[in-house]
Design a protein around this nucleic acid. Structure first.
Length: 277
DNA sequence: CGCATTCCCTGGGTGC
DNA sequence: TGCACCCAGGGAATGC
């Protein structure tokens, strides 16, 4: 499941592969992948556009084209593949196929069909774009600091885990890294955020950025289904300390890692190392 | 407004 | 071997 580091890896890989290329053909095989418009309008607005810029907000990919921005959220299992002109790009889960001007095909693939694509005029302000309606600052945005998180937290009754997953506070952290961040910060994921101090949030933010940067460097995590557009597998999963480690020995104290449910999400923790506040 | 619940989807896992 | 059933999970929509 791609989170900020995997999305960043996909973006950089695609930038390297398709920057400057023009779309010459579009096949929409599953129209529900597209938000707020039908397949013919989607096709019309993207046809003959070039891939110019590559950016990201949280887990959203933003492809700057000539006249529009193509925004993509991969959700659980969305991925891009690039096929050479003599390769067969079709499969059961290939939902949108873009043919490029050099003959290669860029294919959006999504087993669970949870992903979404959005198209916006380039001059439309980000806050007015529906995709970003509930998306706050990116985790690496300079406007996110310990004081900001503290101010956000003190008015909420939620838990640390849910706070980290709340994209309107800070965008980019998902279920895997939320567990890792709570573990490194030594807080129980069910800690109520209004009990945490500015200093605590400095620790949490430092760990968030360290973990996300480490994962970007490793090329993203591969768990279950994720592979980046070139099939580059991240090695960061080897560095995960608690997520999906139920029953394993805690790397710090040796006690078994436990799995609980917090806010409806599977959550892994060490009860000994992570304390409620 | 905040917070909880439901829904979207399908492959994998389980039980018989 | 196959079938019925349940579950995970990000985010939008809906409910209170």
């Amino acid at each position: 499941m791609p989170e900020l580091p995997e999305v960043e890896t996909v973006l950089r890989t695609l930038e390297h592969q398709i920057k400057g290329r023009q779309i010459v053909q579009i096949e929409v095989r599953y129209a529900k992948m597209i938000d707020a418009m039908d397949a013919s309008e989607f096709t019309k607005r993207l046809m003959h556009q070039h891939f110019v810029t590559f950016s990201r907000v949280g887990k959203y990919l933003v492809f700057g084209m000539d006249d529009v921005n193509l925004v993509v959220h991969l959700r659980m299992e969305g991925k891009f593949y690039i096929y050479q002109k003599d390769e067969d790009p079709y499969s059961k889960h290939a939902h949108i196929v873009f043919t490029l001007d050099d003959g290669r095909k860029l294919v959006y693939h999504d087993v669970r069909k949870f992903g979404r694509m959005y198209i916006y005029d380039k001059d439309q302000p980000l806050p007015l774009q529906k995709a970003f309606q509930h998306v706050g600052y990116d985790a690496f945005d300079v406007r996110v600091d310990a004081n900001y998180l503290y101010q956000q937290a003190k008015k909420r009754k939620t838990t640390l885990k849910q706070f980290l997953l709340d994209q309107s506070v800070m965008a980019g952290v998902g279920n895997i890294y939320a567990d890792e961040i709570a573990y490194r910060s030594k807080f129980h994921p069910e800690t109520k955020v209004y009990h945490l101090t500015k200093k605590d949030f400095q620790t949490i933010l430092d760990n968030t950025r360290m973990i996300l940067k480490g994962a970007i460097k490793a090329g993203g995590t591969t768990i279950r289904s994720y592979t980046s557009s070139l099939g580059v597998d991240g090695k960061f999963q080897l560095q995960l300390k608690v997520h999906m480690k139920k029953g394993d020995a805690c790397p710090t104290c040796g006690k078994p890692i436990e799995k609980i449910v917090v806010g409806g999400r599977g959550t892994y923790l060490c009860r000994t190392c992570q304390k409620r506040k």
